Amino acid sequence: MSLWPHPRKRSQLSIERIITRFKLNSLKGFVSMFLVGTMLSVALAACSGGSNNNSATETPAASNVAANKQNVELTLVSFAVTKAAHEAIIPKFVEKWKQEHNQTVTFKQSYGGSGSQTRAVIDGLEADVVHLALAGDTQKIEKAGLIQPGWEKEVPNNGIVSKSVAALVTRPGNPKGIKTWADLAKDGVKLITADPKTSGVAKWNFLALWNSVVKTGGDEAKATDFVAKVYNNVPVLTKDAREATDTFAKQGQGDALINYENEIVLAQQKGEKVEYIVPDVNISIDNPIAVVDKNVDKHGNREVAEGFVKYLYTPEAQQEFVKLGFRPVDETLAQSKEVTDKYPKIKTLGTVEDFGGWNAIDKKFFAEGGIFDKIQAQKKR
């Protein structure tokens, strides 16, 4: 809703102030009232006649502009592994919106590492909707003043629209016998993972390792010791998840790779042979969706942007996420035979909330001088 009165209302308010200055029992007052009436008629006619020509630059009520357009454009900025799902979902949304609103929606799409996408939006990439790997990235855009606080309450499931879990990829035949998180700390095992200081996926990897200890009765001292041993078995920390995968798959380094389950499922669908284990003590990798308030108000397409975000929660859209390797956030779909047959059951699932949220996580583990820095400083050379 606009903070400014409609032009017609502003004209009426101005006229009312003028009227009080004149007395009705004088010729001067009569003439003045005649002039005021003329002014009012002209003002109202001007407002009515020009209302369809207002652009986002002519009126602060820019968020309503798209409602009067036959064609509307949305810019979606997302993390790389969602591309296949969105390319399947978007045509269905476009068709549905056309039927219900008689508007043609076109999409500009941008995919990349969640951290780099976050920085791009903050630096000026005018995303209308962001779908990122972790809520911490969305919160950075919020802190930059582009997203209003409370975005996670605008839609179901605290803004989480897709999710996955962590998986361990091994060499063919699994020659090192890697079956659980604990095996990654053994002597002679080399693990490939990205740097959590530069990669959102790598933060999930770190939390999965830490979670595997605290969810099975270990205290923080044991968790620190275990994670330190694992990272001592990491020959090189790559910049991002894509580079980690290339280091493992193309360069042949390492005995194991931590990756999203959905990426592995998608790779198998493309014909790649991937051997992997999904540990039954795991972390829920939750990916949030949000409307970028400042940009949709500038572009005048809020209604369409919010419509698209809400559509992603429908069973129809969630089904597309499932087909491409994500676990559904829709509980009814999650209990379906298709999903239970496709995805291994997780016995113990940790969440970001268990750690106090992303602000607490970043401060404790990944900030300057945090636990990860201390582990790296003690790492054997």
Rank of each mutant, 00 (worst) to 15 (best):
Pro149Leu: 09
Ala182Phe: 09
Ser336Cys: 04
Asp219Phe: 01
Asn54Met: 13
Asp297Trp: 01
Ala367Met: 11
Ala317Pro: 14
Asn232Gln: 11
Val81Phe: 14
Ile346Gln: 00
Gly50Trp: 06
Gln253Gly: 10
Arg327Val: 03
Lys222Ile: 00
Trp4Phe: 06
Lys310Val: 13
Lys9Ser: 09
Cys47Asp: 08
Ala120Thr: 08
Phe30Ser: 01
Ala305His: 02
Thr82Met: 11
Lys294Trp: 06
Gln70Arg: 13
Phe355Pro: 11
Pro149Met: 06
Val309His: 01
Ala317Phe: 12
Val322Thr: 14
Pro91Asp: 13
Pro344Ala: 01
Arg302Lys: 15
Lys96Asp: 13
Asn102Cys: 08
Thr38Tyr: 00
Ser32Gly: 07
Gln253Val: 15
Arg10Cys: 04
Ala144Asn: 04
Asn295Trp: 09
Ala360Trp: 00
Val65His: 09
Val36Pro: 01
Ser41Ala: 08
Lys250Glu: 06
Ser212Met: 03
Glu338Tyr: 14
Asn301Asp: 05
Gln319Pro: 09
Ile141Gly: 12
Val296Arg: 13
Ile122Met: 10
Asn211Trp: 00
Leu13Asn: 09
Ile178Trp: 01
Leu184Cys: 10
Asn64Lys: 15
Ser26His: 04
Gly350His: 06
Gly325Met: 02
Asn25Trp: 02
Lys298Ile: 02
Ile277Thr: 05
Lys96Arg: 15
Ser336Tyr: 04
Glu87Gln: 13
Asn359Ser: 08
Ser14Gln: 07
Val72Trp: 13
Ser110Phe: 10
Ala317Thr: 11
Pro328Val: 02
Val329Pro: 11
Ala67Pro: 01
Thr75Met: 14
Ser48Lys: 14
Ala84Arg: 15
Trp181Ile: 05
Lys347Val: 03
Lys298Ser: 11
Val304Tyr: 15
Gln318Ser: 10
Met39Ile: 14
Ser164Gly: 13
Leu184Trp: 02
Leu132Ala: 05
Gly150Glu: 05
Val105Arg: 09
Glu126Ala: 09
Glu353Asn: 08
Ala166Gln: 08
Lys197Met: 00
Lys229Trp: 04
Thr216Lys: 13
Arg242Phe: 13
Lys323Asn: 14
Phe206Tyr: 03
Ser26Asn: 04
Trp151Arg: 10
Asp219His: 05
Ala167Asp: 06
Val292His: 13
Gly300Ile: 06
Asn53Glu: 07
Tyr231Glu: 03
Ser199Gly: 02
Thr238Glu: 02
Ala249Met: 07
Ala208Arg: 01
Gln103Ala: 11
Gly124Tyr: 05
Asp297Pro: 08
Phe93Cys: 10
Lys92Asn: 15
Ile160Ser: 03
Lys98Thr: 15
Lys186Phe: 07
Ala45Ile: 12
Val291Tyr: 02
Gly145Asn: 04
Val292Pro: 08
Met39Gly: 10
Gly145Cys: 00
Gly29Thr: 06
Asn232Lys: 10
Lys163Asp: 09
Thr314His: 03
Thr340Tyr: 02
Lys28Gln: 03
Asp255Glu: 07
Ile371Arg: 05
Gln253Leu: 07
Thr340Gly: 01
Gln12Pro: 14
